[in-house]
């Protein structure tokens, strides 16, 4: 039944689109097989840069996000400045559009003309993406840390574990398990947002496509680049689904402590 209705819908959509008056023109400018084939190697090369940003940025996002989350959960007056700083950081970079941060970091830092400040769009683009994503991920981590019941911390402390040991051995492992689905979801978002470093002039998949479009007056390279990003995202999305499903089963079966 599901298969039939899906097929039916696909057929109707196909007929509507292909019978539209502008279809022949759209077909040649967006879906030209020849242009697609010709542009693929260059765009794929660009995608390697996106992948590098993704890997380096992804790791940094996790590290920075976790540190910020821990800073936000510290208690006691001694940590007030650190807490405030972390909160201010999260508010600022969660609110600001990624593209603005990319412009500010990517063009602002080199403009300072300071010795030793990197000017490569790869480094600056990655830095901007990390700034924004770490703010999001910090909130995910914080929610996870706070979802661990206070009685777990009490049990850990009653055994003589220090605050740091309780956090590392008891709280964080449980928090991580809770937030893994949310983190994977953010990773899917990161996978396509790495394409935004093209605004800094880095020759990534998007920028390569742009150049090819400019050269051929044909939009097919954009479609190729877009599809490559989709191909990148699909496996992660399936993994995220599987992990969420497993987490749901865990919660339903085991009684909560």
């Amino acid at each position: 039944m599901a298969l039939v209705s899906t097929l039916l819908f696909a057929v109707v959509a196909y007929l509507v689109v292909t019978r539209s008056p502008g279809w022949p023109r759209v077909q040649t400018t967006f879906f030209s097989p020849q242009v697609a084939l010709d542009s693929l190697p260059e765009i794929a090369r660009g995608l390697l840069l996106n992948l590098r940003v993704l890997v380096v940025g992804g790791v940094l996002v996790l590290v920075v996000g976790l540190l910020v989350a821990i800073a936000r959960t510290l208690r006691g007056p001694a940590f007030a400045p650190l807490r405030l700083l972390a909160t201010g950081y999260v508010d600022l970079f969660r609110g600001m559009p990624l593209i603005i941060v990319l412009y500010l970091v990517g063009f602002g830092f080199p403009a300072l003309g300071l010795q030793g400040v990197p000017t490569s769009p790869f480094v600056l683009g990655t830095a901007a993406i990390v700034l924004v994503y770490a703010a999001y991920v910090a909130e995910v981590f914080r929610a996870g840390i706070e979802s661990v019941h206070p009685s777990q911390r009490a049990a850990a402390r009653s055994l003589g574990l220090t605050h740091r040991q309780s956090m590392r051995i008891v709280v964080l492992p449980q928090a991580l398990r809770t937030v893994t689905p949310a983190l994977l979801n953010d990773f899917v978002a990161l996978q396509k947002d790495v394409g935004l470093i093209s605004v800094l002039g880095a020759i990534d998949a998007v920028r390569s496509a742009q150049i090819l479009v400019g050269r051929s007056f044909n939009f097919t390279p954009y479609v190729v680049a877009g599809l490559l990003f989709v191909l990148l995202a699909v496996p992660t999305a399936r993994i995220a689904d599987a992990v969420s499903a497993r987490a749901r089963r865990r919660q339903q079966s085991g009684h909560l402590l």
Binding site: A155, A156, S158, L159, G160, I169, Q174, L257
Partner: peptide, 26 residues
């Protein structure tokens, strides 16, 4: 200390729950 709601660590096995403090703390 033993609590009303047990408060065992759910991500650790029974043995790990018991040996945690002796190894890490003591």
């Amino acid at each position: 200390v033993v609590f009303q709601a047990y408060n065992l660590f759910p991500h650790l096995s029974v043995l790990e729950n018991v040996t945690l403090a002796p190894t890490v703390v003591h």
